[in-house]
Structure formats: C-alpha cells, structure tokens
C-alpha cells in the first residue's frame, strides 16, 4: 500500500506531479476546444437553418462526415494531413517555407471539428424549438436581425440546448484522451509514461480512470446548476 502511495508522490521518484500536469493539460485542451467547437456548431446550425439549399447541403455534409469518422482518424488526418497541406500552401508563397502546427493546435482543431458536428445537431434542434412567431414579432417591433438573435432567440435556444451541450462536453472530455497518440502530454500519455517506467499498468490506468471520473462528476454538477439557472425565466413565464 505504501509502495503505491510512493508511486503517486510528488517528486523525483513519484509520478504524482507528472500525472497532475497531464490532468491539467487535459482540462486546458477541453476548455480551449469548447468555444471553438461550439462556434463551429453554431455556424453549422445556422447554415442548416438557411434558406439556400446549397448552404444547407454543405452543412449537412459536414455533420455527416465528422459525426461518422472515428475521432482517432480525424485526429490523424488533421495532424499529419493538416501539416503537409499547410506546408505546401505556404510553399506557394514563400520559397522553402514550413509551417509548424504544434500538437496542441492539431488536437484543438480535430476535437473542435468533431464537437462542431455534434453540437450543431443540438443547436439546430434548439433553433427550431424557438417559435417562428416570436422572431416575426421581434422583427415587427423593429429589432435588427442581430438583436433578434441576441435578445429573443439566443436565451431560449440556450435553455433548450444546454442538456445536449452538456452531453457533448462529457464526450469531449473523454475524447481528449485520444490526443495522447499524437504525443500531447495529456493525462493519458503521462500515465502511459509512468507505466513504462514502473511496470504498474493496472494501478496507473485505474488512477487515470478515477481522475477522468472526477472530472465527469464535477462537470455534471456544474451543468445541472447551469441548467437550473437557464430555466429560471422559463418557469416563471410558463407558470409551473
């Protein structure tokens, strides 16, 4: 038992500090990806709601592809393919130029693309849930399109979308573990390094699982508060 505690200690012969650093990076990665993915998702959702058939089709194609590809594959394509593509593009403008996509960026882009596809479904459903008449009424009051979205559509959309987005976040949190295969020193990779040195796979992978579990638990607590908050106005108006 004390041996195991020593393995987790912070310091030269323990792995506590390495694993904690990895856990922190996992959180950072997820937090940076979240706004990127939601922004993509919102854009795609609005495109799906567009009147133009071509825009709609593009948006649907995007969702089909990034929902259908394994996240691991998306990650490889972005990491290797993205770098080659950008280098080639840069080479067109500057002779012998090279573009460096660091792993963190590749991870954010790949996970963001996936999150964008999944959250666009949630957001699209939420947009549709806001009755048309409300938008028309707001427009009749002389509000600009932007203000209609900000004042009328968005607050309601947010309430409807929150449970779905909370689900998306949970999936994202777990998907971050995949970036360890492109050499980002996240929780999973630091754990693998500890396993390589100590030869204690069961213990360390179990610890990693428990840390992810704690993240999930904290997230669901935060989201249920957010949901309660977002629904306040709704309860009052609806009177139940």
């Amino acid at each position: 038992m004390f041996d195991f505690l020593r393995l987790l200690s912070f310091g030269p012969d323990g792995w506590g500090d390495e694993i904690a650093r990895g856990a922190l990076l996992t959180i950072e990665l997820a937090l940076v990806t979240l706004p990127v993915g939601i922004a993509i998702g919102l854009g795609v959702a609005l495109a799906k709601d567009s009147k133009s058939a071509a825009v709609k089709m593009l948006a649907n194609a995007y969702t089909t592809v990034f929902r259908g590809l394994p996240e691991l594959l998306t990650l490889f394509i972005v990491y290797y393919g993205g770098q080659m593509l950008l280098t080639r593009l840069a080479g067109l403008f500057v002779e012998g130029a090279s573009v460096e996509v660091n792993q963190f960026v590749a991870g954010v882009v790949a996970l963001g693309l996936v999150l964008g596809a999944f959250s666009s479904e949630v957001l699209y459903a939420a947009i549709r849930a806001v009755p048309r008449g409300q938008k028309e009424a707001a427009a009749a009051l002389g509000l600009s399109k932007m203000r209609v979205f900000r004042l009328v559509t968005f607050p309601q959309l947010w309430r409807v979308a929150l449970p779905g987005l909370s689900n998306n976040w949970m999936v994202l949190l777990k998907d971050t573990s995949l970036v360890s295969v492109i050499a980002i020193s996240d929780l999973m990779r630091q754990t693998a390094i500890a396993v390589g040195v100590t030869k204690q796979p069961f213990f360390f992978y179990l610890i990693a699982c428990l840390i992810y579990l704690v993240f999930s638990a904290i997230s669901s607590a935060v989201f249920s508060r957010l949901e309660a908050r977002a629904s306040r106005g709704f309860r009052r108006v609806g009177g139940h």
């Binding site: 777990k174 999973m188 699982c209 579990l213 999930s216 638990a217």
Partner: peptide, 10 residues
C-alpha cells in the same frame, strides 16, 4: 465517465 481508451489500456 471514463474514456474507452483508458479502459482498453487498463
């Protein structure tokens, strides 16, 4: 609540 990758390694 835990990633499938971690479960698989475990």
């Amino acid at each position: 609540g835990t990633p499938l990758l971690a479960q698989t390694f475990l």
